[in-house]
Design a protein around this nucleic acid. Structure first.
Lengths: 218, 218
DNA sequence: CCGGCGATATGAGTAACGCTCATGTTAAGC
DNA sequence: GCTTAACATGAGCGTTACTCATATCGCCGG
């Protein structure tokens, strides 16, 4: 699907060794993020842990932001893939079940996937060619594109699956819901290392109440 | 009220000139943030624009994060003060009016106050002595403390004012509401430089629907 | 098997950053 | 006027993100 190299890599690795190296660098980036955070992460240390010279690092990644952005994209793909699988597996009788499932999977990945707690889609970085950012912080400019992608695929996965009526109103509502849910889950993980259960429950309620206006009863 | 120097300054300026200098540095920090964002901001440039030698900068601010944190605190105080004034001035018949007023004032400050679009309370920085941050990004650790402060004062300003029943459930709901509203308003400003009106309206609805569960009808 | 060309490899080097520190100057209290 | 603490200053240090000149590798047509 959406590949890591979609706009985030300087050069797409073609040969076998370089593909493995790029993958290793992303893995080490994720682990290092969990240890030291974004500010503490250095490209040199990522390269060192991945056993790749710094020059090679910059052959493929444009800069430090690009590295983290690529990781965020990989995490996004992983989340959506796993969500699609679970939506297919489990019995979904109502759209509220789908909301709960999405929140649950998101929380599960925050707990288990390295780096996901730091760079879920896309707290951290903007995509190149994004909206004009005259006078805005690059750090804050990220979530839009990623969350639109999430909302878009969520619409396909959840709403279309359940036969809800579409329309621009619903599209916008989904973007808002993703944005708000993302923020509250982040809060839950700041309060408690495993995610405060009360806040996670509150997140589900927030989203259900809000979306109830946009999705008719069945 | 809560002063800028509450934990963010290395030394509180006592004499007149140093007080002015600290204020000037915060002003220039805000303007520079609007121009180049957090990553692009350098302590040297802030000092240069404020006509303060770099050594003096570090007499008062512990580091770059501390500078931005101090600005965020100043912005927080400004917001709450202005909100308190408006709550006293205008006719409030319902708690939903208070929610609308808070959102409106927040948006207004994002439009007019330098730096507020970048560091409203407290997207950017954690406070010292915050929660343990083993393995979490410092950049993401911020909102908690600030939003708790906001929720706390909002409770005093809005809820107590209207005689709503208190309790831990309501307290938590307010924190969640502030967190979610913050995220959606940020989204509105990423989409549109003046804040997308549709998304701002959607933010009001999100908060009202959610809080309706926690605040009884009158 | 070879010749050649693009893809990949490499790490010393550069500019710029955050921040310190030793030393000098000013204001306040007695 | 003396003492003490607050304030002022900018050269310099360690570290970072990132570049670039040069060397090597892998692949494919002939």
């Amino acid at each position: 699907m959406t590949n890591v190299s979609a706009g985030t890599l300087r050069r797409r690795p073609a040969q076998r060794r370089s593909v493995e190296r790029v993958e290793r660098m992303l893995d080490e980036c994720a682990r290092l993020l969990d240890e030291v955070g974004y500010d503490g992460l250095t490209t040199k240390e990522v390269a060192r842990r991945a056993a790749v010279p710094i020059g090679t690092f910059y052959q493929f990644f444009p800069d430090k932001q690009g590295l983290v952005r690529a990781l965020a994209l990989r995490n996004l793909d992983a989340f959506l893939d796993r969500l699609a699988v679970r939506l297919g597996e489990e019995e979904i009788s109502d759209w509220t079940d789908a909301v709960d499932l999405a929140v649950d999977e998101f929380v599960a990945m925050k707990r288990t996937t390295p780096g996901f707690a730091i760079v879920d889609f896309g707290e951290i970085m903007p995509f190149p060619g994004g909206p004009p950012m005259k006078g805005t912080n690059r750090l804050l400019n990220a979530a839009l594109e990623n969350n639109v992608i999430v909302a878009d695929r969520l619409r396909v996965l959840v709403i279309d699956l359940l036969g809800a009526p579409r329309g621009p109103g619903l599209d916008r509502a989904l973007v808002v819901a993703v944005e708000a849910a993302d923020a509250v889950i982040k809060l839950a993980f700041r309060v408690h290392p495993e995610g405060d259960p009360g806040l996670i429950a509150e997140c589900r309620r927030l989203i259900r109440r809000y979306l109830a206006d946009h999705i008719p009863e069945r």
